[in-house]
Amino acid sequence: MKPEPPKVPRIPQATTKRLPLYYRFLQSFNNAGQTRVSSQELSEAMKIDSATIRRDFSHFGALGKKGYGYDVANLLEFFRHTLDQDEASNVALVGVGSLGSAFLKYNFQKNHNTKIVIAFDNKAPVEGKLMSDIPVFNPSVMEEKLAEYGVEIVIFTIPSRSAQEVADRLSKTPIKGILNFAPIRLVVPDHIRVQSIDLSVELQTLIYLIRNELA
């Protein structure tokens, strides 16, 4: 029987977003044969100040020892369970345009516990077709296929004009989360968590930071 992920206290969202990064860099240290690592070494590798790293880790209790640092294997195991890396999550993609097609080709297969198993697009036939070895169906059969493929998470790469309508349909299904690339704030019931990524906002933020650093 797979062990339960460790129960952790409520932590800040900014810390939550860094957890997969810690796991990725710890994998790199482990693959290089390094047995222990300091917060300073993590800081230099990740370009995150060491105080932030220590503060993030403090939310989970005593993960390291003063004067020793962190045991790489133990820390990697801890974050593997915390992020539930042993349990794969089936993902569906809605919208196979330029961005959606890129997701299908990448498909999170390396060092991730998620995999796109199905996609939906208005131009796809009801009976489905293969794109990058992923079955793509017409959205008219979305609810049926989500249940058939055991999907927990859905990625939206669709226009904002149709995003809320699709979200309304998904609210009546057992899905748990939406990764939303549509530039719209989705309204969903409490059992669905939404993570929105507005590429135009991210780009504007980057431009602002660059210009103010050079000012």
Rank of each mutant, 00 (worst) to 15 (best):
L104G: 01
P5S: 13
M46V: 04
L75V: 10
N31F: 06
L93E: 06
V94L: 09
T82A: 15
E41R: 10
G64C: 05
A62S: 15
S162Y: 12
A167H: 01
E152Q: 09
A88V: 14
S58A: 15
Q164Y: 00
R54H: 09
I118S: 05
S101F: 04
M1D: 14
L76I: 03
R55G: 07
V126G: 06
S200K: 12
Q85S: 10
E41F: 00
I48F: 02
A32Q: 13
S39Q: 08
S160W: 03
Y22P: 03
N138C: 11
K2G: 03
A119I: 00
S39W: 02
E165P: 00
D84W: 05
L199D: 03
Q164W: 03
G100W: 07
D84L: 07
P183S: 05
V126R: 11
S98H: 07
Y23S: 07
N122E: 12
I197R: 08
N107P: 07
K110S: 07
V136N: 03
I207T: 14
F78R: 01
Q109A: 11
R211D: 01
D86N: 13
V91T: 05
G67P: 03
P125Q: 10
S89L: 10
L186V: 03
V91H: 00
F120R: 04
L99A: 15
Q204N: 13
I116F: 00
N212E: 14
K129C: 14
S28P: 03
R169A: 10
V8T: 12
E41M: 05
Q85H: 10
Q204S: 13
A73S: 09
F156V: 01
R24L: 07
